[in-house]
Computed example of a mutant assay.
Amino acid sequence: MDIEVLFESKGRFRVLRFLLKEGQANISRIVRETRLPHRLVKRHLEELVEKGLVIEKRYGRLKLYEVNLTDPRISATKRLIEELERLWSE
């Protein structure tokens, strides 16, 4: 996934940003917190899992999603978002 692809979708960015802040969540919580349609969140999560940026964990019927903190792209993205938020809040 190119960096442009990650940031070209406001929805994909919101899902990833939420997971970076919260650590992990199920799809219902992500939908509620991002205020995006379920089908859109599901599609974004599938793309992020496919690219290795997000990990899907299953506990019976429950699926939890969390960012893949071992991926250097995630570390860099997290630092970038934190710095941009800091600058915008000044």
Score class of each variant (00 low, 15 high):
Gly11Asn: 03
Tyr65Gln: 03
Leu62Cys: 01
Leu62Asp: 00
Arg17Tyr: 12
Trp88Asp: 09
Lys42Asp: 15
Glu56Phe: 00
Arg58Leu: 06
Arg35Val: 10
Asp71Ala: 09
Val5His: 07
Ile81Leu: 02
Leu6Trp: 07
Asn68Ser: 11
Val5Met: 13
Arg32Ser: 06
Trp88Ile: 13
Leu19Pro: 01
Leu62Ala: 10
Val67Asn: 01
Tyr59Pro: 00
Met1Tyr: 13
Arg58Phe: 01
Leu48Ile: 14
Lys63Ala: 08
Arg79Leu: 07
Leu84Asn: 01
Arg32Thr: 08
Thr70Ser: 11
Tyr65Lys: 00
Glu56Leu: 04
Gly52His: 03
Val41Lys: 02
Asn68Cys: 13
Thr34Asp: 10
Arg79His: 08
Leu53Asp: 05
Val31Ala: 01
Thr77Asp: 01
Ile27Lys: 05
Lys51Met: 11
Leu80Glu: 01
Thr70Phe: 06
Gly23Met: 02
Ser9Gln: 15
Ile81Val: 13
Arg61Asn: 04
Arg32Gln: 06
Leu87Glu: 15
Val54Ile: 07
Leu45Arg: 05
Asp2Leu: 07
Arg79Cys: 12
Met1Gly: 13
Thr34Cys: 04
Arg43Asp: 10
Arg61Glu: 14
Leu20His: 03
Pro72Gly: 05
Arg17Phe: 14
Ile30Met: 03
Asp71Pro: 04
Pro72Glu: 14
Arg61Cys: 03
Ser9Thr: 10
Leu62Trp: 00
Phe7Ser: 03
Leu84Ile: 15
Glu8Gln: 12
Leu16Cys: 04
Leu16Asp: 08
Tyr65Phe: 09
Leu69Ser: 12
Glu46Met: 13
Lys57Pro: 02
Leu53Cys: 08
Lys42Gln: 15
Ile55Ser: 03
Asp71Trp: 05
Arg58Ser: 06
Ser75Asn: 05
Arg14Glu: 11
Leu16Gly: 04
Val5Trp: 12
His44Phe: 14
Glu90Asn: 12
Arg79Tyr: 02
Gln24Glu: 11
Val41Ser: 02
Leu16Asn: 06
Arg17Cys: 11
Leu19Lys: 04
Ala25Glu: 01
Arg17Leu: 07
Val15Pro: 12
Asp2Pro: 04
Glu83Phe: 12
Asp2Gln: 13
Leu48Ser: 10
Glu46Asp: 15
Val5Ala: 15
Leu80Thr: 01
Glu33Trp: 00
Val49Met: 09
Thr77His: 00
Met1Val: 14
Asn26Glu: 04
His44Pro: 00
Leu69Lys: 15
Arg39Gln: 06
Pro37Ile: 02
Leu84Met: 15
Ser28Trp: 09
Val31Ile: 09
Glu83Cys: 04
Met1Asn: 07
Pro37Thr: 01
Arg29Trp: 05
Glu47Gly: 14
Ile81Tyr: 00
Thr34Leu: 02
Ala76Phe: 02
Glu82Val: 03
Leu64Glu: 06
Glu82Pro: 03
Arg86Trp: 09
Val5Pro: 02
Glu83Arg: 14
Arg61Phe: 05
Lys21Met: 09
Lys42Arg: 12
Ile74Arg: 15
Ile3Ala: 08
Phe13Gly: 07
Arg73Glu: 08
Ala76Glu: 04
Leu64Ile: 08
Ser75Cys: 06
Gln24Ser: 10
Glu50Arg: 13
Asp2Cys: 03
Ile81Asn: 00
Leu87Lys: 14
Glu4Lys: 13
Ala25Cys: 05
Glu47Pro: 11
Ser75Thr: 01
Glu83Asp: 05
Arg17Thr: 12
Ser28Leu: 08
Lys42Thr: 05
Ser28Lys: 14
Lys21Ser: 04
Leu87Met: 02
